[in-house]
Nucleic acid binder design. Structure first.
Length: 987
RNA sequence: GCCCGGGUGGUGGAAUGGUAGACACGCAGGACUUAAAAUCCUGUGACCAUCGCGGUUGUGCGGGUUCGAGUCCCGCCCCGGGUACCA
């Protein structure tokens, strides 16, 4: 009986489904283990071969853990809100819900074919009201919370209000906007509700503020940052401008320190942790106040190099800085206004792309806090309004940007450290050496100077030590249809109200059109009844939440997916705790992973979860790339003059000339240009095949000149290519573009394609569909081959040709059980010593490799085991049973069916994973490699019990070894037991 | 610029400081077959060789540590990813 995967898969699947074997309970005497995949966005294109890589990886681990005796939670769901569905809705008018559901169906069908051990009863879908009800609930909690920086925890906003009522906001330690003014309890009570509301917005963890969006008038819509390229819209290339709109934000900055500290406890790769650290961007520095000359105001500056303060020769503030208007002196007013206007007209990207130093003097001066020297104040666009205080103290000798600015405006460059070099050419940011030109810190080193300066600043009330974070609060508003509506409405005075929790979910309304409204509002604004659902004089918030709202907590929902009353019950969460093993792409390193960590910490603060971090261990799978194949089209640059006499011939030749496709052998790449390699050979081939063509060229006295030849490569559908050989006959028959193509083949008659590794995508014609692979080779071969490709975390190209190796292996595996006629091959007697040795060696290696997540070598190890066992005459049933269990996580269908055939009535899913017995691995001798001066010369089988003296005697007596030692002095004789022997002799 | 990864045969890759290239693809040759498919066997880094003894060389480049380095250290080069007027 041949290995018949379709029958095998059917039997296994039916068995699993009828017994509901992947259903997981929220309680067990077994220890829990939570294995999670990053849930996918269900796109219309379906899965390609690259998508399931991580899913297969985590599934193997989940199955392994289950066999090792854990109660394993391994769910799957869909991140179903998002732009592509909305885009499709705009084009077709179809409700995104319909297309999303359809896509999810396709995904589920595809995923089920691969044999994952998902508990589908726990599926979550973020766009379903039963799910986003809870997303909205979390938003309300964020809205009703502030962050107490002293206690390092979120607290109810009601507590803050009562503090305001009793003592005002003095002495409140809260994460809030720096701009909040101090007020007393009496003042608070006297504020009108609207003002109170505005003040509270500075404290809430979900808050609203005026903020700039990318407004595209031509498209009538607000664009996300990645939809804007070089200041114009990605689609259509229309200009984009900054528009101020009230936007929702989440105060993730309140959690900056905890997000940073929490990384230490996580078992993630350092590179992902580094990305998060960089994103959070903690910098320790100082705030310094520079009082303005002839003004009450002062300019506050944040600096990480307070030690350079005596090198300050000017101040630069952002053009958007609040003080610009006030401090500009009349004589500079015109220039300053012009400069500000110019900056405002530029997009952020343009501003950043600008490499030329620009700026404008304001006419104002500040006083140096220590020396009282007058320091000029400039505005320049290299200073960002959004970072720090929007002002920098410029130290040209220590900062390259300041240096360039100083050169341009002829400002002093003051050396401040004796170790600074090359100041004639560039700034030197060193912290080495002793200070010079620096008043009371002269002669000190960096650490001492910094400490002393901060102390003085604080004593004299001129500044203080401060920690700054690069991370910004997270924008939470989208002017889109396909997202969670906010549970927020406004009255006619724009006072904000929250929707009662009992009234959740606020579901999306039906709308006429998903197109942008043209006003910047989301399409929800057109649903009048919906907008006024809480009263005629009220209006709903019409923005929707961004994609990360639903994905920031979905892993909790799997624990208790049916719960209508709360996001997750305390019992379910207490049982499952958090994710033990998270698998997904590193492209979510900062977005999803940072937001999820933030929400999780917040949920911990409000008592919904009892763990600080959501994902304990994480593995990031590398991308599977496509191998694109190319054909080379040849365009000889032939000037055609008067052709009337040869018109007929010409039309044929013209056809020929425009359809010549030449094999890669004829091509050479020089300076990224494709050229003909060997003109004479090519000409000969052409002459043989198409004499007319060459005649034509001669006819016109036109010799082919290598410079005139243009070759361009074109992607060709990889389905026409095997081992680089193009099936051009089939291509010509099936693809209209190649109907008239003439393929110039190589000497063996084959057309060889060019090949390149690229991202897998439709447009590159290199997409491999898993359904196709599974149809041809079966799900188990597909699973094992994906693992066999290489280590999980590196990017690697997909090459379908290689799959035959794994396919051969699994058939060979099957043949150990059954001969070609389906007759069982195993014998009931005991396993032989040879067998046991092979088996236990294999068990040991597979256990080790699974633990270190090297599933590629697991597959190799099984191949080796099967190769070795196949050489034995007989294999016992015990050995086959153990092998079946070993392969079960990797090839579950095959293993399940073999398990049945071996006479088991249970499922292999719940079998115990084999462990090795050291006694079978004990060797009595070892075939030592013998090195002389580090070079391998011979191998000698030696007893492992032999003493070093005995070994030395035998080795030195060996004929081959003698050849190298004769007449030389033996300096050293090294025996590494069971490993190697190395002789050191004189040269 | 800065921060991470990574450079090993024709290809994917393997290798606790201990025989570099396991395993597999591809390729070449052979067996079985009328033939093909399937299966099995042999060979396969490069170079040299009196091609069944063997030798030289070889893990991006240059040094170093070590009896011994793909692996550890120092200095470069190249590729990939992230990030940036962040004060």
């Amino acid at each position: 009986m041949e290995y018949n995967f379709s029958e095998i898969e059917k039997i296994a699947r039916e068995k699993w489904e009828s017994s509901n074997i992947y259903k997981v309970e929220n309680n067990s005497t077994k220890p829990k283990y939570y294995v999670l995949d990053m849930f996918p966005y269900p796109s219309g294109a379906g899965l390609h071969v690259g998508h399931p890589l991580g899913y297969i990886f985590s599934d193997i681990y989940a199955r392994y853990k289950r066999m090792k005796g854990f109660n394993v939670l391994h769910p799957m769901g869909f991140d179903a809100f998002g732009l592509p569905a909305e885009q499709y809705a705009i084009q077709t008018g179809q409700h995104p819900e319909i297309t999303t559901k359809k896509n999810i169906e396709t995904y589920i069908q595809q995923l089920k074919k691969i044999g994952f051990s998902y508990d589908w009863s726990r599926q979550v879908t973020t766009c379903e009201p039963s799910y986003y009800k809870h997303t909205q609930w979390i938003f309300l909690q964020l809205f009703n919370a502030w962050y107490n920086t002293k206690k390092e925890q979120a607290q109810p906003i009601a507590d803050l209000i009562s503090v305001f009522e009793t003592q005002g906001n003095k002495g409140v330690s809260a994460a809030c906007d720096d701009t909040v003014l101090k007020f007393s309890a009496e003042e608070w009570k006297s504020f009108p509700p609207k003002q109170q509301q505005a003040i509270l917005m500075n404290y809430r963890l979900a808050f609203q503020k005026e903020s700039f969006v990318n407004w595209c008038p031509a498209l009538g819509t607000v664009l996300a940052n990645d939809e804007v390229i070089n200041g114009v819209s990605e689609r259509g290339g229309h200009p984009v401008e900054k528009k101020k709109m009230a936007q929702w934000f989440l105060r993730i900055t309140a959690y900056a320190e905890r997000l940073l500290k929490g990384l230490e406890s996580l078992d993630w790769t350092e590179s992902i942790k580094d990305m998060q650290r960089n994103w959070i961007g903690k910098s320790i520095g100082a705030m310094v106040s520079f009082p303005l000359k002839n003004h009450q105001e002062k300019i506050d500056v944040f600096t990480t190099r307070v030690d350079t303060i005596f090198g300050v020769s000017f101040l630069v503030i952002a053009p958007e800085h609040d003080l610009v208007q006030q401090i500009t002196t009349p004589e500079f007013k015109e220039q300053v206004e012009a400069y500000v206007k110019m900056c405002a007209s530029k997009s952020d990207i343009e501003r950043q792309a600008e490499k030329v130093v620009s700026g404008q003097f304001t006419g104002a001066y500040v006083l140096h806090p220590f020396t009282q020297t007058e320091v000029p104040v400039f505005i320049a666009d290299y200073v960002l309004a959004g970072y720090g205080t929007g002002a920098v103290m410029a130290v040209p000798s220590g900062d390259q940007r300041d240096y360039l600015f100083a050169k341009k405006f002829d400002l002093p460059i003051i050396p401040i450290l004796d170790a600074q070099q090359n100041l004639e050419q560039e700034a030197d940011a060193t912290k080495e050496g002793k200070y010079i030109n620096s008043d009371f810190i002269n002669g000190l080193n960096y650490a001492d100077a910094t400490a002393l300066l901060i102390q003085k600043l604080e004593e004299q009330n001129k500044g203080y030590g401060k920690i700054n974070y690069k991370m910004r609060d997270a924008g939470f508003s989208r002017q889109r249809y396909w997202g969670e509506p906010f549970p927020i409405y406004y009255d006619k005075d724009d006072i904000i109200y929250t929707v009662d929790e009992e009234k959740l979910p606020i579901t999306l309304p039906k709308v006429e059109s998903y197109k942008p409204t043209g006003t910047g509002e989301s399409p929800l604004a057109t649903a009048t009844d919906w907008v006024t659902q809480f009263g005629k004089d009220t209006r709903m918030e019409t923005d929707t939440m961004p994609g990360y709202a639903g994905s920031s907590w979905y892993f909790l929902r799997y624990m208790d997916p049916e719960n209508e009353h709360e996001i997750v019950s305390n019992e379910a969460q207490a049982y499952w705790q958090n994710v033990d093993f998270y698998v997904g792409g590193s492209e979510h390193a900062v977005g999803h992973l940072l937001y999820s960590r933030f929400w999780h910490k917040f949920l911990k603060d409000i008592g919904k979860v009892n763990t600080e971090e959501p994902f304990q261990r994480m593995v990031n799978q590398g991308m599977i790339q496509g191998v694109s194949k190319f054909v080379y089209k040849y365009f000889p640059d032939i000037k055609i003059s008067n052709q009337t006499d040869v018109f007929e011939e010409f039309s044929n030749l013209n056809k020929l000339v425009n359809n010549l496709i030449i094999s890669r052998e004829f091509i050479v790449i020089e300076n990224e240009k494709l050229l003909l390699k060997d003109l004479s050979y090519f000409e000969r081939v052409l002459t043989d095949k198409y004499p007319g063509f060459v005649n034509y060229l001669n006819l016109n006295n036109h010799k082919i000149n290598i410079d005139d030849i243009k070759i361009r490569k074109f992607h060709v559908d990889i389905n026409y290519v095997k081992n680089d050989i193009l099936d051009f006959e089939r291509l010509k028959a099936e693809d209209i573009n190649y109907k008239d193509a003439i393929f110039i083949t190589e000497e063996d008659g084959n057309y060889y394609c060019g090949s390149e590794v690229e991202k897998m995508s439709k447009s590159k014609w290199n997409v491999v569909n898993p359904d196709q692979i599974i149809e041809q080779y079966g799900a188990d071969v597909f699973r094992m081959y994906e693992m066999f490709l290489g280590p999980i975390d590196t990017a690697k190209p997909w090459d379908t040709n290689g799959i035959s190796g794994v396919s051969n292996f699994i058939r060979k595996f099957w043949r150990m059980f059954f001969d070609d006629f389906g007759k069982q091959r195993w014998i009931e007697n005991q396993a032989s010593q040879d067998e046991l040795k092979i088996l236990h060696k294999t068990i040991k290696k597979i256990n080790e490799d699974i633990e270190r997540l090297a599933f590629n070598t697991c597959v190799s190890t099984m191949m080796i085991a099967v190769n070795e066992l196949s050489k034995l005459k007989t294999v016992s049933v015990a050995t086959l049973s153990t092998l079946t269990k070993l392969i079960a996580p990797f090839a579950p269908h095959t293993a399940e069916v073999l398990w049945l055939k071996l006479g088991n009535s249970t499922s292999i899913v719940d079998a115990d994973f084999p462990t090795h017995d050291e006694q079978y691995l004990v060797e009595s001798s070892f075939n030592y490699p013998i090195q002389i001066n580090g070079k391998h010369r011979n191998n000698i089988e030696l007893s492992l019990e032999a003493t070093n003296e005995e070994i030395q005697t035998i080795v030195l007596a060996d004929e081959k070894i003698k050849k190298f030692t004769d007449g030389k002095e033996l300096k050293k004789f090294i025996v590494v037991k069971g490993r190697i022997i190395n002789l050191v002799v004189s040269e």
